[in-house]
Amino acid sequence: MKNKSKYLAYPYVIWMAIFIVIPLVLVLYYSFTSGNIHDPGSLKFSVESYGKFFDSLYLNIIIKSFWLAFLSTVLCLLFGYPVAFIISRAKMKHRGLLLLFFLVPIWMNFLLRTYAWMAILSPNGFLNRVLEMIGLPTLAIMPGQKAVVLGMVYNFLPFMVLPIYTVLAKIDKNVLEAAMDLGANGLITFVRVILPQTIPGIVSGVTMVFMPAVSTFVISRLLGGGKELLIGNLIEQQFTVHRDWHFGSALSIILMVMILISMAVMSKVDAGNEQGGAALW
């Protein structure tokens, strides 16, 4: 029985090889070569594409991308933690419904939701019309960085709430009662008992928000009016407009390495809290 169940993993291994490993190897190969992509014989080893990257033009784009992603992640954590806390403290029969309210929007396509934000935030959009109607000054949010961050927070918030909620829901009520009995007030219980136990949830939430936020190109294009070029847009342009696969691949590898480094740092934080419970997702 044990031996047979091993075979069940084969389809997954093949799937991984075809759709994850081979493409990654190709990206790596293209990033370290130069020449005409459509004539494999002409490709030569070269680090030219990586050299190109160390130009203040591209460095600034990457700094901006990381900054905006960082900002969105922090905001998601600030909004997401209380929400997860409230849901986990709700009565059992209400919890499902509360979670559902939170999840229903993700059932709709992400692109449609971003277009909806365009209609709400645009200069003559819904928000400004309402503000005008009640006699308040109109806002100039879209297009701009504020709108981009708002779009990221809106789209990725559920990825922060869910892992934190899962950990919170698992905390034993008796532990909290014990803390209270031993004289801790609400704040101390939270800081010294609840918070340390939820760190694994926070870590996976932060990773799951940060990664898509740093590489997005749709949100920045639609809500940033095409004026906020992020690393995701830069990579997309290499393939769709400039047709420079080598540079596009090199940028992708650089982005991947930087994300891996940030994740390694995050898991260091996580390692210090082994007792916190199983990792999520």
């Binding site: 365009m118 645009s122 200069p123 959009g125 009016g225 095409g226 004026k227």
Partner: peptide, 22 residues
């Protein structure tokens, strides 16, 4: 010119003009 423009678009232009956004 960049600070005074709303943005760079393609397919959205007609709708934005009709909506009075620009």
């Amino acid at each position: 010119q960049k600070p005074i423009i709303n943005g760079y678009y393609v397919d959205e232009i007609v709708d934005m003009m009709i909506n009075g956004d620009a």
